[in-house]
């Protein structure tokens, strides 16, 4: 007999000018099916108007971040039967402007990252544009930042962070983690100036180590660790 799970999906249509509501759908589930598969089933068979963003379906692209039963998850990385619930509440991420249903506008995340210059910078402009040599690193140098390169910019940490929720100007776990990632990279030449980017009220000092970012990160990036290491640098 096919097992059914009830999906309660947050539906929001900006053109209606009303608050969002939860629509419920019965979805047949079999072993191995992810929450994203469930949402695609709803879109194909029950309600084609459901808006959901996804791409790779294998936790690489970071498009399908959402809140499942009150916790931020990648829909494609979450097994329905693994949740062990008869009801699954699917909501969009918090702390981002909501566009429609489960689709949020990721601009705040990308803008904050951009403002912090989270890319490798060489002092020599010619070298920056047209590198002439290879920049070799030891295993040890790589180990200092490798973990933080696993970030797929899904925004789950940004959504889970209690400080971003209450104080929107906070740079957020993802951006601060990125700053540490480049600060710790031996090829980068900005050095301690990177710390000065985040040594301000909206920066590293607003982190209170609630750990929610690391708790929800689907790639094990541990932004909370990066922020504490960055703060240690700021305290030096």
């Amino acid at each position: 007999m096919t097992e059914y799970v009830k999906f309660l999906v947050y539906r929001y249509r900006p053109e209606d000018g009303k608050k969002g509501v939860y629509a419920d759908y019965d979805v047949p589930v079999k072993k191995g099916m992810t929450v994203l598969d469930g949402l695609i089933y709803i879109k194909e068979n029950l309600d084609p108007t459901l808006s959901v963003r996804f791409s790779c379906r294998m936790a690489i692209c970071g498009s399908c971040g959402m809140r499942v039963n009150g916790l931020e998850m990648l829909a494609c990385h979450t097994q329905i039967l693994g949740l062990r619930r008869k009801h699954i509440i699917v909501e969009p991420m918090r702390n981002f402007p909501l566009l429609r249903d489960l689709v949020t506008d990721m601009t705040p995340l990308f803008m904050k990252q951009k403002a912090l210059k989270t890319w490798l910078i060489r002092r020599d402009e010619l070298e920056q544009e047209n590198p002439t040599i290879q920049y070799l690193q030891s295993e040890e140098e790589l180990g200092k930042y490798l973990q933080f390169t696993y970030c797929i910019q899904c925004g789950l940490c940004y959504s889970a962070c209690p400080v971003v929720s209450t104080f929107p100007a906070f740079l957020g776990p993802q951006s601060l983690m990125k700053v540490y990632r480049y600060f710790a990279d031996s090829r980068d030449e900005v050095g301690r100036e990177r710390v000065s980017f985040v040594d301000k009220f909206e920066g590293v000092w607003r982190c209170h180590f609630a750990g929610s970012c690391s708790a929800v990160c689907p790639k094990g990036v541990d932004p909370a660790l990066a922020i504490q290491l960055l703060r240690r640098e700021a305290l030096k």
Binding site: V163, T166, F167, P168, A169, F201, R206
Partner: peptide
């Protein structure tokens, strides 16, 4: 207070 109201 800053984090409650969302600004300084």
């Amino acid at each position: 207070i800053a984090e409650l109201v969302g600004f300084r």
